[in-house]
Amino acid sequence: MATVERLKELVEGVTARAGYSSSIGTRVLEVRRGEVTMALDRRSDLQQVHGQFHGGVIAGLADHAAGAAVTTAFPEGKFAVTVDLHVNFLAPALGDSLIARAKALRVGGTIGVSHVDVYSVCAGKEEICAVITATMRAVDFPGTEPARHFKI
Score class of each variant (00 low, 15 high):
M1A: 14
T3K: 03
L10M: 15
V11T: 07
E12G: 01
G13I: 01
G13M: 00
G13L: 00
V14G: 03
R17H: 00
A18E: 12
Y20D: 04
Y20W: 13
G25S: 06
T26M: 11
R27P: 02
V28G: 02
V31R: 02
G34H: 06
V36W: 04
T37V: 10
M38V: 09
M38C: 10
L40F: 04
L46E: 05
Q47F: 05
H54C: 09
H54Y: 08
V57E: 02
H64K: 12
H64P: 05
A66H: 07
A68P: 12
V70K: 00
T71M: 11
T71C: 08
F74A: 07
E76G: 11
A80E: 06
V81L: 09
V83N: 12
L85M: 12
H86I: 08
A91R: 06
A91N: 03
P92G: 01
L98R: 02
L98A: 05
I99Q: 14
A100I: 07
K103L: 10
A104K: 07
R106W: 13
V107L: 07
V107I: 11
G108Q: 11
G108M: 09
G109H: 13
S114Q: 09
D117Q: 10
V118S: 06
V118C: 11
Y119W: 01
V121C: 04
V121H: 07
E127M: 14
C129Y: 00
C129D: 04
T135M: 14
F141G: 14
G143D: 10
T144Q: 15
P146L: 05
H149S: 14
